[in-house]
Design a protein around this nucleic acid. Structure first.
Length: 502
RNA sequence: GCUCCGGUAGUAUAGCCCGGUUAAGUAUUCCGGCCUUUCGAGUCGGAGACCCGGGUCCAAAUCCCGGCCGGAGCACCA
């Protein structure tokens, strides 16, 4: 009784899921770049877990740094599009820059209860104090004083860098990074206006304040994020304690890398600025936009992420693996067509009659139909011309037999850089098969269209596609036989396709 | 340097918490056979791993200690 056949790999259960009425997860990107494969772990895991427990999945834009990690308007939509494409549609969406007053409210409460303070110390001095586990001179002033400073902060009575709101923790905490962490600061908002709310707010919450408050307010039960946030959990737990809240269950997974491609936002942005990449979907990038354009399916990405799971160790994915998953998805559905890269014109002589070739769109699904080509030899010479790949002709030396798939067998007589000559030898497939001759694909000259394939290194391969490709539509994913799977990008008088993988 | 994590075949993952029929399973990869009018798919077979050293125990990938290696954090970033 081995019922392993259809056993899809499943996610391990979420910790303490049964303690909550409904599981709520969130994905909270900073809209300062497009999404890429590195983001997939958070997105897919959050979404899939929410689905698995019939819970909710929330998208929350964390755009509270108008200066250093400046949000860019176009990315809000691009991120929504990416999530859409991944079929990880959020049930709710929030934008932190719309919620600034809420963070102010909790900052005030923290201040009032003496759990936070507005520090006016010199940053360098403060740093030394904290490292030495000593309070700065502001820390122990009465709450009223700090509340007053806070009001002055909001009113614009301080300049950028002069003050910072800090949450009291434990000055003796072994990790200096959690001691009295900063929660809000002033931004020179005239100089660095926020793309959505402009110069409306001078005081901006830092990650732990905004994220911590939101996770509680939005009812997040399970936080799934990268392990770079491990100490943020420790920091936020102090704030939760001050506020009398219970911290959600938190899972911190390791970094995701993929061989050969950089998953660093800053490098992607930099490459774009320098013009190294034409666009966010440059095939060399591992952005979702690029993967999509290359015909990598959202399902393949999801499957791979579920396979990887939420472990804390870093993983280095390999493209081969992604391709293998994608190929399994594409193979049953992709129609087959002929594409000849680096074509040469092969003239076949002594063709005894008119041939009609019927080429199935899919080898295992004949019901999908076929393409049909009629080969009518020239009345005088008895010859006809085909586009065939130079590589195929080169591989079979002069005198060798090859078979044009589903058509007839020929013998190569000569070949140069751009053309070649061959003569018809027989029609029978069995004969070719017995002799184990190479089967190659072909396109009748005249029943063709120019085609270029953009490869994964952004180079372009010029060639010729069969004329049946004229009916293809952008976004179709097909297999060019003996070449690989491609996604059709545009169809006009010529065809442009993006290479996915073999 | 300090504070934390983690190390199973090329890659990824299961097993570890609750030590013992797993002589470590699965996917991919690679090699070979079969099949196939694609260099795709399918199918059959093969190759390939518990970081190292101690300890506990009848028994350790599993527990303990040390080392090595890798990663994360140590921002008025997220």
């Amino acid at each position: 009784m081995k019922e392993k056949v259809d056993e899809e790999k499943r996610l391990r259960p979420l910790p303490n899921a049964d303690r909550y009425a409904q599981v709520v997860t969130r994905y909270s990107p900073n809209p300062d770049c497009v999404l890429h494969l590195g983001s997939a772990r958070a997105i897919v895991l959050c979404y899939e877990y929410a689905r698995m427990y019939e819970g909710r999945f929330i998208l929350r834009f964390e755009d509270t740094d108008p200066k250093l990690k400046r949000p860019v308007l176009e990315f809000y939509d691009r991120i929504r599009e990416d999530l859409d494409w991944l079929e990880c549609k959020p049930d709710e969406e929030y934008i932190q820059s719309d919620r600034i007053p809420i963070y102010y409210e909790y900052a005030e409460k923290l201040l009032k209860d003496g759990n936070a303070y507005v520090c006016t110390c010199d940053p360098e001095l403060l740093r030394r104090k904290i490292l030495a586990s000593e309070p700065c001179e502001c820390r122990d002033w009465p709450p009223e004083e700090h509340l007053a400073r806070w009001q002055r902060m909001l009113a614009g009575g301080y300049r950028e860098g002069e003050v910072v709101l800090r949450i009291k923790t434990d000055l003796n905490h072994p990790n200096p990074a959690v001691r009295d962490w900063p929660a809000a600061r002033i931004i020179d908002i005239e100089k660095y206006p926020h793309p959505r709310v402009g110069s409306k707010y001078k005081v901006w919450p830092l990650y732990n304040l905004a994220c911590g408050v939101d996770d509680h307010l939005l009812g997040i039960t399970h936080i799934i994020r990268g392990k770079e946030h491990l100490t943020n959990q420790v920091r936020q737990e102090y704030m939760y304690k001050h506020l009398g809240w219970k911290y959600p269950e938190a899972t911190h997974y390791g970094r995701l890398k993929i061989t050969g491609a950089s998953l660093s936002k800053s490098k992607i942005v930099q490459g774009m600025k320098e013009g190294l990449y034409k666009d966010w979907d440059d095939p060399r990038l591992a952005t979702f936009a690029a993967l999509r354009r290359r015909g990598i399916t959202a399902d393949a990405i999801k499957k791979m992420i579920i396979d990887v799971g939420p472990k804390t160790s870093d993983v280095t994915l390999s493209w081969e693996n992604l391709y293998a998953i994608n190929r399994k998805i594409l193979d049953p559905t992709a129609d087959r067509y002929f594409f000849v890269p680096n074509p040469i014109e092969l003239t076949v002589k002594q063709i005894p009659k008119t041939f009609t070739a019927r080429l199935h769109l899919h080898p295992e699904h004949s019901e999908r139909g076929f393409r049909e080509y009629t080969i009518k030899p020239n009345e005088d010479s008895g010859s006809a011309s085909f586009w065939v790949s130079k590589r195929d002709v080169d591989a079979s030396k002069t005198g060798n037999a090859i078979r044009l798939m589903e058509l007839f067998n020929v013998e190569i007589q000569s070949a140069s850089a751009y053309s070649g000559e061959a003569s018809f030898t027989s029609e029978s497939y069995e004969e070719a098969r017995k002799a184990k001759v190479q089967l190659i694909h072909w396109i009748p000259v005249g029943q063709d269209m120019p085609c270029q394939v953009v490869m994964s290194d952004a180079t372009t391969l010029e060639g010729i596609a069969e004329s049946a490709c004229k009916r293809l539509k952008p976004n179709n994913t097909v297999q060019f036989e003996r070449f690989g799977f491609v996604r059709i990008d545009s169809v006009n008088t010529e065809l442009t396709a993006y290479y996915a993988h073999k």
